[in-house]
Design a protein around this nucleic acid. Sequence first.
DNA 1: TGTATAATTGAGTGAATACTCATCCACAGA
DNA 2: TCTGTGGATGAGTATTCACTCAATTATACA
Lengths: 192, 192
Amino acid sequence: MARPKSEDKRNAILDAATRLFAERGLAAAPTSEISKLAGVAEGTLFTYFGTKDELINSLYREIKLGLADAMMSDFPRKKNVRTRMRHVWDRDVRWGIANPRQRKVLGQLLVSEVLTKQSREAGSAPFVEFQTMIRDGIEGRVFRNDLPVELISKSLGALVEATIDLTVANPSKADRYRESGFQMLWAGITRR
Amino acid sequence: MARPKSEDKRNAILDAATRLFAERGLAAAPTSEISKLAGVAEGTLFTYFGTKDELINSLYREIKLGLADAMMSDFPRKKNVRTRMRHVWDRDVRWGIANPRQRKVLGQLLVSEVLTKQSREAGSAPFVEFQTMIRDGIEGRVFRNDLPVELISKSLGALVEATIDLTVANPSKADRYRESGFQMLWAGITRR
DNA sequence: TGTATAATTGAGTGAATACTCATCCACAGA
DNA sequence: TCTGTGGATGAGTATTCACTCAATTATACA
């Protein structure tokens, strides 16, 4: 190998892309500006990512990895379902508040037409333990038994979104919103 | 007036835009193809909508109006909160399933950077009665009192989304999902 | 230190596309 | 029926942008 690719450059490009995508949207962020903001020549962007679509797919995986890391690290595998659920809830909400740009870009990526099936699969792979937890909850009769696993996981995601939106609009109530949101989720999915 | 603008043409353009936006995304649907699919010349599109952005904003209002009509017509003002809530829930879920293209486009529009503040306001105006209903629920001590109005309304929207996603993936279980989703919402927001 | 290899650069290119405008034409009102 | 206004048309235009490539440069390895 003559000259190795630089992890730093790759990250700088992904970082610049995140900023510009968040500010202007995927389509209105030209590769010329992404590379300029990243401090590299436009051609360099294309040695790291073959096409703009490939850059977008890579960015998706990167963001999902970061989110998974935030949510699943220190996951209390041995504790009861409520504790595990709460762990995931808190981490998810906090990540969204602390990473508004990545969250915004994620929203754009998910409705875009450029994400490949593989990327979507790769993106959800790090969350397997989360699915397991939900199945535990159903089998252990903690959760209601008429709710499909997917409804529970999607609902958590959806309620997290609502909670973050509110917190962003009114940051001083962050703790209250996070608490209320979880109460609502928990009341919704558990047996009475 | 020499020749009046045709409501039909306007609708044809909005309809064609909906189809193409849903299939390819906002940015990848050129005005040339929208007008072709609508059966008018490209120039005509610009006599009805000054710019592509204006077309997009008009489309947003149109879709929101249709959704509001579906959700709020026959709204049982006099009935109790649960009945009203259920009315809105069922109509919202059914609309999403019956109008997948409009729903998809709505998702893209909401994360896009082209919607004006006015459009967003105009879009939520037809839903005032819905807000009133939630306030009724809180004041009448039907709902828990630690939940902000916005969390409840956003959660309904979010759970509707999750329910529709599931139904689209598995249409034969439509009734079950719609029921379970509402149970979950209701359990989450009401006092025990 | 020398050399082969691959990264880096940025001006250049071709394709795509939002919007224009000269011309034509349909219709409301007289 | 006539006429003036303004809608309808689509080829044309200016611009933007993803991607290329020949020249240059840095570095791993001998």
